[in-house]
């Protein structure tokens, strides 16, 4: 299962909840969170990404299935 994790930097306020919940999916830099480049996707990553999105106090994280995007292209 492949998915796309995005951080909306208009909303992100850099509290680091995501990097704490899912350190392999997010890193902190310049007072913002950044999704890590992922070459392989695993089901557990998807669940972690959703947990990070739910745990973000600024609702800045979105997780979407990459097949959605491909269909739109």
């Amino acid at each position: 299962m492949a998915n796309v994790v995005k951080v909306d930097h208009d909303l992100c306020s850099g509290t680091g909840h995501c990097a704490e919940i899912a350190p392999k999916l997010f890193s902190m830099s310049d007072r913002r969170a950044w999704p890590e480049e992922r070459t392989t996707e695993q089901a557990e990553d998807t669940e972690l990404a959703h947990r990070a999105a739910d745990g973000c106090p600024w609702f800045a994280i979105s997780v979407s299935d990459s097949t959605d995007n491909e269909e739109n292209q």
Partner: peptide, 16 residues
């Protein structure tokens, strides 16, 4: 809580 908070996050975000 989430419903209320979503109404405020953009007005109080770091960039705004």
């Amino acid at each position: 809580h989430t419903r209320q908070r979503k109404l405020f996050v953009r007005a109080l975000s770091a960039s705004r």
